[in-house]
Design a protein around this nucleic acid. Structure first.
Lengths: 335, 335
DNA sequence: ATTTGCTTTTGTAGCGCTACAATCAATCTA
DNA sequence: TAGATTGATTGTAGCGCTACAAAAGCAAAT
């Protein structure tokens, strides 16, 4: 992207200005301990004065290595990925790597994002979930780039970090049963292909079946509906069974929508109905009553994802490795 | 990032396999109309079979051009930047460009992100706000990379796209006065350096002064407090003057926190107090009562930002250009 | 048959950097 | 004092691609 007018400052020009060879400049930046203290300082000073910025593209090409890691995230629409991304950022910074992000809300877009990252020859790729276009997977396999799938904890095609949504769902059901609920409703996402969501419904049914309870109270909502899904879900489930006494929501946003709707209906929570969310978003602690929710250790997940990639680059990590970062249940007033 | 084991598929190997010269492969990808239909199809087919991915780094280096644009955004913690990023994504896709994101919550981090982008030799950079580290600005100036500052609409060091927070604040104050409010409180962010926020307080004071009203009801909160800032702000302002009858919040999140607190206190909104938010987040339409708020046309802002960069690359845009994307007021029940 | 104008294809050189081997200087050992 | 050892520095070649100019094909015009 050389602008026609501006003369580009290259490593050559820095070397000339500092009176050393280009290799010394290169070493001063990449392997500081290889060059003598005073030489290094002089080089860095000259470079700063000239406004020299190492050309990643050239370095990348020459070395076949990159210090940039790419992460694809499905959305920034709600806060669920904030901590995840923070964890990634902090971890890469610690090791002198860079993180770049691409948003992709469908597997098709994800595949395009992967292409971009591959074209950039990133050092590694972090994905969310384990549903991907097969040609994107082929490409990643073929190039051998380290890939970590996050928010899942099983059968990665390379590496994975996450927690068991099944276990979390079971824990939530148990909590509701223990507090006396018998007619528990479940809200899921319509047409979702992401295992982050699809695993929950079977886990819900199994848990109830094991407790000898019915599990017919299931309502699907549009993922895009956000808060608005809450009222719809509550209405749908109430129609099916007015004696419903608990509801498990796919996110805290939906759960907040349910709480809003309970307020409109004058239903007391958790007396009339217990409400459980998922994700431990900020709103969970601020809304009244506070939302009981699953806390997925997203920050740690982001950290581990990056660590796994960096370790692989250093020849330490292993393909096929899976890390379970677990989850917590945050118990508040709503359930 | 060549993995030691995997043989890399280069343009050379694609050319050999397709029985053409490397240049024809290059043209087939970059300037499809330059190569004959059937040749092109054969090349693309062979490339796909081999799993060839053009090496951006090499192309970048050779051409001095890049189709990647970098955007720095301050946070994904709340949804305010979702539409902005969506607008950017859609626009770059339309022109065959790529968007990569970096998160940076301080000007120091922003400067680092800019360095990364510059090192990647991106085609352009989009920033939020107009407060930057001076050395980062120097670097951008020196390299001549097209830069657009967004969410501001004045005095860009290169280009800017945004709306007037002053005008928006004035509109909000007028709305409140028109509905009969006389003791209007203002919530601002403590220590914020970003003009997105700092412009509002003077505008607030001016508007009130012009209407002959007092403007002593100002409370500052921590930006990181989120919903929690609402109760604190309401309490602080109420202490200063129990007759407060309206409150302007820095974001819909804070406003939602205020509404929650009003609920706890049994205050009717807008009868006891009118509440105005900012940003038209999803929660604004879902919470009860619905939140009256400023709608900043973020999607269009993102689109325009990218368009401005791409046009500059094509030699059409001009340094110094500023686009005002305006704002709207969404009137709901809360004010 | 030759020229002209057009489209399609192809060598060549070089973008800015780093791996690697070679060189040089300084210090240490026998 | 020669020889070995260590550390700092430097040439050289080449990473994979594209700009550019040159060449080759091909059809219509002379």
């Amino acid at each position: 992207m050389t602008r026609e007018d501006k003369p580009t400052v290259t490593m050559q020009s820095v070397a000339a200005a500092a009176g050393v060879s280009p290799m010394t400049v290169s070493n001063a930046f990449r392997y500081p301990q290889r060059v003598q203290e005073d030489t290094r300082r002089r080089v860095l000073k000259v470079a700063a004065e000239l406004g020299y910025i190492p050309n990643h593209a050239a370095g990348n090409l020459a070395s076949g290595q990159s210090r940039v890691i790419g992460a694809v995230i499905p959305s920034i629409k709600n806060s669920s990925f904030y901590k995840y991304v923070s964890g990634m950022q902090d971890q890469v910074a610690e090791h002198g790597y860079e993180l770049i992000l691409k948003l992709a809300d469908t597997t098709r877009h994800e595949a395009a994002a992967i292409q971009t990252f591959l074209g950039l020859r990133v050092a590694g790729i972090a994905l969310v979930g384990d549903e991907h276009e097969s040609d994107a997977v082929d490409l990643m396999r073929k190039t051998g780039v380290p890939v970590v799938e996050s928010w899942v904890h099983e059968k990665p095609f390379d590496m994975a970090v996450g927690y068991s949504t099944t276990a979390a769902t079971e824990a939530l059901v148990k909590l509701l049963i223990d507090r006396g609920c018998r007619r528990i409703g479940f809200v899921g996402y319509e047409g979702s292909v992401s295992r982050r969501f699809t695993e929950r419904l079977p886990a819900f049914r199994n848990s109830l079946a094991r407790a000898g309870l019915e599990s017919d109270l299931v309502h699907l909502v549009e993922e895009a509906d956000g808060f608005g899904a809450g009222p719809k879900a509550l209405e749908g489930l109430y129609r099916r069974d007015p004696s419903i006494d608990a509801i498990i929501c796919p996110t805290d946003i939906v759960a907040a929508g349910v709480l809003f709707e309970c307020g409109r209906r004058g239903w007391k929570v958790p007396e009339r109905i217990a409400v459980a969310g998922w994700g431990d978003y900020e709103i969970a602690s601020e809304i009244s009553p506070g939302l009981t929710t699953i806390q997925p250790n997203a920050y740690e997940m982001g950290q581990r994802a990056m660590r796994m990639i960096i370790e692989r680059v250093w020849g330490e990590g292993e393909p096929g490795s899976v890390v379970n970062t677990g989850f917590g249940i945050v118990r508040r007033a709503s359930a």
